[in-house]
Computed example of a mutant assay.
Amino acid sequence: MTDETTGRATSIDVGMLDDLAGDPPARRDLLRALRGVTGAPGQDRFSASAPSILTLAEADPARHVLVVRHDGDVAGLGVLHPGGANDRMLALLDGARPQDVVLFRGFLVDHRHQGVGVGTAVAAALPGLVAALARRTGREAFALVVLVVDAENAAGLRAYTRAGFAARGTYVDEDGHTQTVMALAAS
């Protein structure tokens, strides 16, 4: 990938925090860096803060934190949550069972790394990451990766569409915002 502003090659890598379970000091340092991820002004409407995302993930062993690096620097985070799709999402997924769906949630790209393709790269990596999660947990492959994006989040909608996600429908959340449910085959 090439940075459009500088013309230089960039590297975007996505991995799982779970991979550092055997190295507590490295995991602790990475968690500190992840807690420092901040979106651009106004993006708090589309995603929770990094500390909130990590607190929820640490409290729920079903949530698996993704670490996003851009040119070696921590550039963002997200969460893979098997079985995390709610009834409103599942109703739009043609009879998918909760246990066959992995919800991608809590995705936040640091403001210093926006506009260089991080969102598209992460979205494109999701099927492989979900397959690796199935292998790691010793289960059969998941059927779908699903996510929810605010209908006003044009950058998010573009990134997910570029990666092959298809809109499956919308619902209005508790705050009155229209949310678009998008899905992609996990294998």
Rank of each mutant, 00 (worst) to 15 (best):
L133I: 06
A131H: 08
A151W: 09
R28I: 00
G83D: 08
V118G: 09
G106M: 04
R8H: 14
R63K: 14
R97V: 15
T10R: 15
R162G: 06
T2H: 13
G83T: 08
G119H: 14
R45K: 11
A123Q: 09
T5Y: 12
G76E: 08
R105L: 04
D44G: 15
I53M: 05
D29Y: 00
V102D: 04
G39A: 13
A48G: 11
R136W: 00
D110E: 04
M1T: 14
V68S: 05
G15P: 07
L20T: 06
V149M: 10
S187N: 10
D110S: 03
R28S: 13
A96M: 06
M89D: 15
A124V: 12
R97P: 13
D150F: 12
R139N: 02
A166Q: 13
V122I: 14
T10I: 15
T6N: 08
L133P: 09
P127F: 05
G138K: 03
R28Q: 12
H64G: 05
R135L: 04
P24M: 00
G15R: 14
L147N: 15
A185M: 00
R88S: 15
A121M: 10
R112E: 10
Q114W: 08
G36M: 05
L92I: 06
M1H: 15
G15T: 15
T180V: 14
A167I: 01
R35H: 01
T178R: 13
D13T: 12
A151M: 08
L103A: 12
D23P: 00
T170G: 04
R158N: 13
V67L: 06
H81S: 12
G42H: 07
T55S: 09
L129C: 09
G42N: 06
R112A: 12
T10P: 02
R162I: 09
G84Y: 03
A185Y: 01
A96N: 08
A50H: 02
R69W: 09
L54M: 02
R105M: 05
L77Y: 05
L147G: 15
T55D: 11
L17E: 01
P51G: 01
V146D: 10
G128I: 11
A143H: 14
L20A: 10
A159L: 12
R8Y: 13
D18S: 14
A185W: 01
R27T: 04
E58W: 00
D94L: 00
D175M: 03
D44S: 13
L92G: 05
E140Y: 03
G39V: 09
T6P: 09
G128E: 10
A91N: 08
P82R: 03
A21M: 06
Q179R: 11
L92D: 11
D3G: 04
A91L: 09
A183R: 05
L147V: 12
N86E: 15
V109K: 10
A141K: 07
R158L: 13
L66N: 05
E174I: 04
T161G: 13
G176I: 06
G36N: 11
A50F: 04
S52E: 11
P61W: 01
A151R: 14
D150M: 10
G176A: 05
L20N: 05
L77K: 02
V148Q: 14
H113T: 07
M1W: 13
L133H: 07
